[in-house]
Amino acid sequence: MSDLILHHYPTSPFSEKIRLVLGYKKLAWKSVIIPSIMPKPDVQALTGGYRKTPFLQIGSDIYCDSALICDVLEHLQPEPALYPAAHKGLARVLAQWADSTLFWAAMAYNLQPKGAAAMFSGVPPEVAQAFGADRAAMTAGMTRLRALDASAAYKSYLRRLANMLEGQDYLLGDAPCVADFSAYHPLWFTRHRVTVLADILEATSSVLAWMDRMAAIGSGQMSKISATESIAICAGTAGASALDDTTYQDEHGIPLGSRVTVTSESFGAEATEGELVAATRMHYTLRRQDERAGTVQVYFPRIGYVLKAVIAS
């Protein structure tokens, strides 16, 4: 298998989710640090348009969205399992809630004026302004919670997590699953990036103890490479997906070989365009060409993404 290359940046919450999954599965991986805001020319040489963080590269295969990355890592390293046999469906549903509803409540709380001021303390005002403008563009059209509403929701969600931890170390039993990693990362952001607001966690001591257990997992065996090196690896590698791409499931009347776009349903809705080479029950695969990266296969989960045919003008 080619090296696992994670494109991320240190303060990205979804990246922390995947870093911990890599640690849980004791996988060696290479780190490429990417910008937190646009422009991202090296990122888009690989993804073709997708700009969210993180994404996983294996040779010339690019896996977008942390939910799909978890599936890829589970396939490559089945043990310890992210999807426990007794709770596979529940683990996925809880993870999806945590990555969406819990995440957005936490971030609306975290990025209220007091939290944002702490995050950008000591940096030039134009840096904070650029970050705000970038995130405003990514969330255009989304309904976002106001800070006071987010605070109330966040407190309720923390209590619900505490309820789940009664009598057990992790959300669904005695070992972490995908739901734990998904619920952890927005709380991690509160605890480590906006410490001025982290007292919200103190009312749920069992959640804090669980967070300590999650943090102790660590992030595995990491080594650093540059974006230029990762693009060269892509250009020099023939595609060999870690996922099963052979079963075609057509929900759109779009045949394989068609020119298509895939776009996030909401946050970060930049489109990736390419040739549709696979559409399975769980994911889409697009093949595209880039002058630096060569032939690239870009993978998206079905859930949360929109597939459309490109209409020739």
Rank of each mutant, 00 (worst) to 15 (best):
S2Y: 06
I5K: 01
I5D: 00
Y9W: 13
Y9M: 09
P10Y: 09
P13C: 01
P13L: 01
F14V: 10
S15M: 03
I18P: 04
R19E: 12
V21D: 05
L27E: 12
K30E: 14
K30Y: 08
I33D: 14
I33V: 15
I34D: 03
S36K: 07
S36I: 06
M38F: 08
K40R: 06
P41H: 03
D42N: 10
A45S: 14
G48I: 01
G48C: 04
G49C: 00
F55W: 05
F55C: 02
D61E: 11
Y63R: 06
Y63A: 07
D71E: 15
L73V: 12
E74K: 10
P78F: 08
H87F: 05
K88I: 11
K88G: 10
L90V: 15
A91Y: 01
Q96W: 09
Q96Y: 09
Q96C: 05
W97K: 04
A98F: 04
D99Y: 00
A106P: 03
A108L: 00
K114I: 07
A116M: 09
A116N: 09
M119V: 15
F120N: 11
F120T: 11
S121P: 02
G122V: 12
V123Y: 11
P125H: 11
A130L: 03
G132L: 05
R135G: 08
A137I: 04
A137T: 12
T143A: 12
L145G: 06
L145N: 06
D149V: 12
A150V: 07
A152W: 00
A152Q: 12
Y154H: 13
L158F: 04
R160C: 12
R160P: 02
A162K: 05
A162H: 10
L165R: 13
G167Q: 11
L171C: 14
L172G: 08
D174G: 08
D174T: 11
P176C: 04
V178W: 05
F181I: 07
S182Q: 03
L187I: 14
T190H: 03
V194P: 04
L197D: 03
A198V: 09
L201H: 08
A203C: 08
T204G: 05
S206D: 15
M211C: 02
I217H: 10
G218H: 06
G218A: 05
S219M: 02
G220T: 08
S223M: 10
S226M: 01
A227L: 01
A235Y: 00
A238Y: 00
A240Q: 13
S241V: 03
D245E: 12
Q249G: 09
E251D: 15
H252Q: 14
H252F: 12
G253V: 13
P255D: 11
R259Q: 14
V260F: 05
T261W: 00
V262L: 03
T263Q: 09
F267W: 11
F267C: 09
F267I: 05
E270V: 04
E273P: 00
E273K: 07
A278D: 08
A279R: 06
Y284P: 07
L286W: 04
L286P: 03
R288F: 00
D290I: 01
R292D: 06
V296W: 00
Y299P: 07
I303W: 04
V306S: 15
K308P: 10
K308A: 15
V310G: 08
V310S: 07
S313F: 00
